[in-house]
Nucleic acid binder design. Structure first.
Length: 830
DNA sequence: AGCACGCCGACT
DNA sequence: GTCGGCGTGCTC
């Protein structure tokens, strides 16, 4: 055999390096290696597990040749991820200018990653069978020493063996395998292991066997097992308190047999399973289903914007599309914005599709996540439902991706790799030739615009099911003065909203009041000297929380007992300005002492309390629900007939070019909670800017007019969807160093703009500028915003800028303590 | 991220 | 004389 040209593997490691590292593939592994496999590689002076992202016969940088080392071994003969998945991960890393290892970590739960560490166990002399190509020479002294240090009962991790025998490489140790001296196993070294259960079944009983002298327990077990394929130990224990000795006795007599089997830890344990309602599709629903079917039958990728008003039956449409997809032998992925919504959603899906569903979201325990992931990878489920991270689930034969409530900002990850699951769903769909459905009552302008440009297919569902009307929306001008007779005695709630509340309570219906600010008062001021209480760690004012009698920061965990007097002038009169949900709740309790008022926000709806509150509201144990954004999300409460928006201006005044769009979305979504069943609903919006087009178009349920108006503004400013943005964000404890780092990058960018025409003409830079919240958790925040109409050009420009600023160099002396965040397609400009 | 290397203060 | 501080540089 002549030695062929070397083969290199690009391996992604869990280290913050932008690129994968290259390793030579040893000759004996050449035919067994593929992208998507986990491998053990030498890294510095230790061994690490990494994922092969590519194989090549040449190095992209030949000067690296002398540094290249051989990889040690495969961790598992089976690839962990499909080539499809690997390509997708590489794309994501590339697109978001993010280290590949960090992206791989998104896709593989940490518990799975350590799966299959190679172990050796010394075989007893009589069990040794050398391979035909084993060396005939005597075993070297070092290897004999290593062999001697192994146990013949307990497997030892090979990495541990290498530590005690530093002179031996993995490669040399492999000789022990070749000579048949050791047994090779791949074992989890982590705490998480697949859970197993002991199963029992009846053995066919030889005719005429005496069954005499069986205890009562033993007889009962035989009776239980009779007619059952098998039963697990817990199932047996449901009937017999302590069956252990009896089971053992029965097995010894050869009457039953037992074995260990992997079982999955079930995260659905508390998911309500609702009976599958049979339904007929409305015409628009049917059209949507048919449009998707055409793409599926043609076997091509297609992206759809499913624009369905609140209550138009989007979920039923998804169900039907997924059913067709499964019938065609492919699988489905459903992405939801909030884990809070999953139990209900999963319940609906289980009633339609049974057990072959997995869920993935950050609320699962590590063990549950581990099990769900393994089920998905083994093709044991057909539908995966989850929050944004489920985008990376290792689903084979993916046929359809549904992104429900695609406008929701929680699809954007705001740390690490700042991916947007909604955008990347389109990419994954394209790679898999799947159909991608982006569903919302308020599609983002990018979707609307792309549909108009023909890149996405627009599917409209403009009417609510069962001919229910969209609720009428009333805008109340809260500005005081003789021109405004509707302003009532309460500065918080207008007479019109109070009147509507009276009616709702009188009719024994429910109301939702939305106020996008938690706490009692968002700002606390000394009435004598004007001192405003600020967070000592963040550049924001403190919020007064009455229940805790404390001032709290909403950006860090700082909190302070509500002081008696001003720390500046010792004056005892301290004013609480502005209104949050806590105060609104208290106010309503005073106004309606007999109504049941509850509040839903991050303070009251943390963890399991959220489900409790929602359930309790659905059961009509609450009359008025006060809440933040959390009440706007797709919940379905049939008896809500009134929705009040206490102050619509809050999101309008946000320092962000998406403020108008956010406001429109918020108002439309919250208004959609009203009148979802047989009783008609009503919406009242209070505002100080009643003439704003976000409010006026929301009042008319007129998405198109809003979109036209907003698109015109975006075009004028070159903002998305007409231009693309990449934000460079700088955070550091030292303000001077942070500014300096920002300046260095700005200088690099400016130089490129000056020297290269292609960039200078097409790219613009805003900043260096202080971030709208200039300091959070004692870290100063600065930013640069890069903008261009051509996405590819903007990407190239950013990479060149980063290179020029030394961003990819290891270690940058000037910016040691400044964190530099690259935010591609930023959503949150704060 | 880790982790080794390196050049300056208080200890056997 | 050395132990160890954490600044800085690098990982195929």
């Amino acid at each position: 055999m002549t030695s062929s040209s070397p083969l290199y593997a690009q391996v992604a490691l869990d280290v913050p390096l932008f690129t994968a590292l290259s390793y030579r593939v040893p000759e004996h592994l050449r035919d067994h290696i593929a992208p998507g496999q986990l491998v053990q590689v030498p890294f510095r002076n230790r061994s690490k597990t990494g994922l092969i992202v590519a194989l090549s016969t040449e190095l992209d940088d030949p000067t690296l040749a002398p540094k290249i080392r051989d990889l040690y071994d495969l961790v598992d003969p089976e690839p962990l991820l499909s080539p499809h998945d690997v390509r997708f991960l590489s794309f994501v890393a590339d697109y978001y200018l993010s280290p590949i290892g960090e992206v791989v970590r998104l896709a593989i739960p940490s518990a799975v990653r350590v799966e299959g560490i190679k172990h050796y166990r010394r075989l007893p002399e009589d069990q040794r069978t050398p391979a035909p190509n084993a060396p005939q020479t005597p075993l070297s002294l070092e290897l004999a020493g290593a062999l001697a240090s192994l146990s013949d009962t307990e497997p030892t991790p090979v990495a541990a063996l290498r530590e005690s025998h530093a002179e031996l490489t993995y490669h040399r140790l492999a000789e022990l395998e070749l000579r048949g001296l050791v047994e090779v196993t791949y074992q989890e070294s982590a705490s998480l292991k697949p859970k197993t259960e002991r199963y029992f079944k009846l053995l066919p009983r030889p005719r005429g066997t005496l069954t005499g002298r069986l205890g009562a327990n033993q007889l009962q077990i035989l009776k239980l097992l009779d007619g059952m394929p098998s039963l697990s130990l817990p199932e047996i224990r449901e009937h017999i308190a302590s069956p252990y000795s009896s089971l053992k006795a029965l097995e010894e007599r050869g009457l039953i047999e037992s074995w260990e089997e992997e079982v999955y830890r079930d995260p659905f344990a508390d998911a309500p399973v609702e009976p599958a309602p049979s339904f007929e599709l409305t015409l628009p629903q049917q059209r949507a289903v048919d449009a998707v079917a055409r793409a599926r039958q043609a076997g091509r990728f297609e992206g759809f914007v499913l624009h369905g008003v609140t209550g138009s039956g989007k979920t039923e449409t998804y169900v039907r599309i997924i059913r067709d997809t499964l019938a065609a032998g492919r699988r489905a992925l459903v992405l939801l914005p909030e884990i809070a919504l999953t139990p209900q959603f999963v319940g609906v899906f289980r009633s339609h599709f049974g057990e072959r569903i997995a869920v993935l979201h950050s609320g699962l325990t590590a063990a549950q996540k581990f099990d769900q992931w393994r089920q998905i990878r083994r093709d044991e489920v057909d539908i995966v439902i989850g929050a944004r991270s489920a985008l990376f689930a290792p689903i084979n034969d993916l046929g359809v991706i549904v992104v429900d409530e695609e406008h929701d900002p929680s699809f954007k990850q705001e740390e690490g790799t700042r991916y947007n699951a909604r955008d990347m769903a389109l990419v994954r769909g394209k790679l898999a030739r799947a159909q991608v459905i982006l569903g919302s009552a308020t599609p983002i302008l990018e979707s609307f615009y792309n549909a108009r440009q023909g890149r996405l297919t627009y599917l409209a569902m403009p009417e609510r099911v069962a001919a229910r009307a969209l609720p009428p929306v009333d805008i109340v001008d809260m500005r005081r003065g003789p021109h405004n007779p509707t302003a009532g005695p309460s500065s918080l709630l207008s007479t019109r909203l109070l009147g509507a509340l009276d009616d709702t309570l009188h009719d024994q219906k429910q109301a939702i009041l939305f106020l996008n600010r938690r706490g009692f008062s968002p700002c606390v001021v000394c009435e004598a000297c004007g001192h405003v209480f600020h967070c000592p760690h963040c550049d924001v004012s403190l919020t007064y929380h009455r229940r805790m009698e404390a001032l709290r920061c909403h950006h860090c965990d700082f909190s302070l007992r509500m002081p008696e007097s001003c720390p500046e002038c010792l004056h005892t009169g301290i004013d609480r300005k502005g209104v949050g949900t806590e105060q609104l709740e208290a106010h309503l309790r005073e106004l309606y002492p007999r109504a049941r008022v509850a509040r839903l926000d991050r303070d009251t709806g943390a963890g399991p309390r959220l489900q409790q509150l929602l359930t309790s509201f659905r059961r009509r144990e609450i009359d008025i629900l006060v809440g933040t954004q959390m009440v706007t999300k797709g919940h379905d409460f049939p008896d809500v007939t009134l929705v009040g928006v206490v102050l619509a201006d809050m999101s309008l005044n946000f320092p962000d070019f998406r403020a108008a769009e956010r406001t429109f979305q918020l108002l439309t979504q919250v208004a959609g909670r009203a009148g979802r069943a047989d009783s008609p609903g009503k919406v009242i919006i209070q505002t100080y800017t009643p003439e704003h087009y976000s409010l006026l178009t929301a009042r008319e349920h007129d998405f198109e007019s809003f979109a036209e108006r907003e698109l015109a503004q975006r075009q004028a400013m070159g903002y998305p969807p007409f231009g693309h943005l990449i934000a460079l964000k700088f955070e550091g404890a030292n303000e001077g160093a942070t500014v300096q780092a920002t300046r260095n990058y700005a200088t690099a960018a400016r130089r490129l703009l000056r020297t290269e025409r292609a960039f200078g003409d097409a790219v613009s830079m805003l900043g260096p500028a202080m971030a709208p919240i200039a300091r959070i958790k004692n870290r100063s925040r600065w930013q640069l915003l890069l903008k261009a109409a051509d996405r590819a050009l903007l990407r190239r420009f950013t990479i060149r800028t980063l290179e020029l600023a030394g961003h990819f160099d290891a270690g940058q002396p000037h910016h040691r303590n400044v964190r530099i965040i690259i935010d591609v397609d930023p959503l949150n400009m704060l």
